[in-house]
Design a protein around this nucleic acid. Structure first.
Lengths: 191, 191, 191, 191
DNA sequence: AATGAATGAGATTTCATTCAT
DNA sequence: CATGAATGAAATCTCATTCAT
C-alpha cells in the first residue's frame, strides 16, 4: 500500500516484481533486484512498501483484481447464458495468454506462505459475480448441479494448465484449437 | 565394518521436506528445519544431498514419479477406453486428495527456480504412457481431436485446482460430487 | 544524497587483515574477526569484497605494489651502479624490517592456494624496473652474468630470510651487522 | 606420532599430506582429502594422529629432519672448508630441486599458525652441526664475522627463493648457472 | 522523498572429529 | 584396528531492512 504518490514508481515496481518472479522463480525474488529493475533505490522501495511481504501482497491483490476484471465484464452480462459464458471464458483465456506472468504470479504466490489469509479472502470476493452467474445457470438447468466453487476450480484449473503449457512450450494456439478448448470447457460444465 | 548408509534417513528427510513445504510454504524451507524434523544433524543432510537445490530436485523427481504411478497403472490398460479412463482419472484424483502435499509440492516447485530444466524434461517422460492412451482414444473417435498435451493439461489442471480448493476449504467431497467431477472430465474430452 | 563509499573502511579492513594474518597465522583468518577488528559489520565486508578470496587477493596486490615501491624509487636511478644498488637494497631491507607483516603476508599467501594466477603475474610486473637495472649492471660488467630472475631471487630470498629470523628471534640488528648483510648481498652479485 | 605400526599407512599419509599441500595450498588441506589420497578412511587417520594439528606437526618435524640430513652429511666434514661448504651447499640445493614440495612444506607451515613453538625449537637443533661448521669457518677467517644465524638465513633464503622460482617457472638450470649460484653463495659469505 | 552504504540476524555449507559397526 | 556415516560447532555468505546524508 503506497504511502505516497509517484505513480510511475509504483508502476515500475509492480512491473519489475512480476517480471522477476516470472524469470527467476519467486524463491529468487530479492528486494535489491526489484529496486534495480524498477530503477529506484532499495531504500525507496521501503518508502512505498513497508516490507517485502507487503510488496508481494500488494502486487498479488492488484493483479488478482485485474484478473477478475478480465472475466467479469459488465457489457456481457445481459446476453444469453451461452453467449455470456463464451465471452467470459474467452476473456479470461485470452487474458492469460497475453499476461501469463500475471496468471503465474497469483498462482505461484497463493501457496508460497507470503500471502495473508485476509488477502486471499478479500480477492476471492472479486469473483462473486461469476458465482452468481453460474448459480443462475444451474437454476436454468444449463449447468451441472454441484458446488459452483468446484465448477470454477475446474474451469480455472484447466485454463491455467493449458496456458502454462502453451507458454512453456512456446506453442502458437490456432483458432481451431482454441475453439476445441472452449468446447471442452463448455461440455464439461453443461448438463 | 562401518556404519552403512541408511535408507530410513533418506525417507525421513524426504518426508520432512514435503511436510515442511506444505506447512510453511517453501519460501520458508530451511535446511536446519529439515534436519530437525527428520531427526538428523544438518551435516548429515549434506552427506545425502550436496546442496539444498539438490535435495529439492531429488524430492521433486521422486514425487513426480510417484504421482505418475498413481495414474499409470498397468492393471487397467486392458479394459475398454471408458473403463480405463475412469480408473486412471479416479486413481489420480484420489491420490491427489490423499496426498495433496505431494501434488502441491510438484506443482509449486516447477516454477520456483529451483528445479533444473533437465529434471523437468526427465519427469515429463514418466507420463508418456498416458499420452499413448489418449492418442489411441483419438484414433477410435472417443476423444476430441487436439494436441494430447492440451487435453492432459485440461484434465490435470482441473483436478489439481479442485483438489486444492477442497483442501484449502477443508471440504469433504461426497461420492455424488466426485462422480460429477468425473462426468465433467469425461464430457470435456469426449466427442 | 546517500552515504558514500568510505575509503577509511577500505583502509581499516586492509590493516585488520594484515594484522590478523601476522598474529594468528592465516589458517586462522576469519571474516568475522576481520570485520570486528576493522570496526565494520560482516555484511559490510561483502559490500567491498565479494568473497574472502577476493579480499585476500586484493590485500595481496595492494601490498605487493607497496613492497615494489620500497625498492624502486625514482630518486635513486641517476646515481652510480653501486650507489643505486645500495639505495635499493637498503630501501627494501629497511622496509621489510619495518613492515615484516606485509613482507610475510605476500610471501605466505603466494603459495596458499588463495592467490589467483592472474594476480601473481600482475604483481610480478611491478618489479620490471629492477630487472632493467640489473641487466644494465650486467652490460657494464658489474653484475655476474646469469638470468636476472635468479639474481633477484637470491637477493630477495636472503633479505626475507634474514628479516624473518630477526623478527622471530626479536633481535636488534646493529648498524655493523646491517652493513655486513649488505656486503654479503653486494659480494654475491658482483663479479 | 603414530600410536601403532603399519608403516605403509604412515608413509602413505605423509606422502599424501605433502602432495596435497603442494597442489592445493595449505589453506585447502582437508583431512577427508588426506584420507582419500592416502587410501585410508578418515577414522583411520585419527588412529595414527590425534588431530590435524598433530598430523601437520608430525609431517613438519619428519620433513625438517630429512632436510637437515641433506645438508649435514658426515662424509664431508673432514675436507677443507671450501670443499665441505661446497658439498653442503650442493647437497641442500639439489635436495631442494628434487623435493621442492618438502622444502615448500616446511617453509609454508612455519608461519601458518599450525606448528607449535616446541617443534620449531626442536627442529632448529637439527642444524646445530651447520652452526659449528660456520663458526669454525669464522675462526679461520674464511667466513665473514657475523651472527651465524644471519649467515645461515642468507644462504637458505637465497637457495629457497631460487628453487621456488625455478620450480614455478619450470626452468631447467644448466650446470653453468648452478655454478654461478654457488659462486654467489660463496662470495657472499667469504671475507 | 530519495539514495545506496551499512547492518547483522540468520541462512547455507564445511569439515575436523566421533562413534557404531 | 579399520571403516566411513554421522555429527554439530563454526565458518562463509545473504539479504531484508535501516539510516546517515
Amino acid at each position: 500500500m503506497p504511502k505516497v504518490k509517484d505513480q510511475n514508481k509504483v508502476n515500475a515496481i509492480y512491473k519489475a516484481t512480476i517480471e522477476l518472479v516470472t524469470k527467476t522463480g519467486f524463491s529468487g525474488l530479492k528486494m535489491a533486484e526489484v529496486a534495480k529493475k524498477s530503477g529506484v533505490a532499495t531504500g525507496t522501495l521501503y518508502v512505498y512498501y513497508i516490507s517485502k511481504e507487503q510488496l508481494i501482497n500488494d502486487v498479488f491483490v492488484v493483479t488478482k483484481k485485474e484478473v477478475a476484471g478480465a472475466i467479469i465484464n459488465s457489457k456481457y452480462v445481459k446476453g444469453s447464458f451461452n453467449k455470456t459464458f463464451k465471452a467470459m471464458w474467452y476473456g479470461y483465456f485470452k487474458y492469460c495468454l497475453l499476461n501469463p506472468e500475471k496468471m503465474l504470479f497469483v498462482e505461484q504466490f497463493i501457496y508460497s506462505g507470503y500471502i495473508t489469509e485476509a488477502n486471499i479472502i478479500k480477492t476471492n470476493t472479486y469473483f462473486e459475480p461469476l458465482n452468481q452467474f453460474l448459480i443462475e445457470g444451474q437454476k436454468n438447468d444449463y449447468v451441472k448441479k454441484m458446488d459452483v466453487a468446484l465448477i470454477k476450480a475446474h474451469l480455472q484449473g484447466a485454463i491455467h494448465e493449458i496456458v502454462k503449457m502453451v507458454v512453456r512450450e512456446g506453442l502458437k494456439l490456432k483458432k481451431k484449437d482454441m475453439n476445441t478448448c472452449f468446447t471442452m470447457a463448455w461440455d464439461s460444465i453443461t448438463e
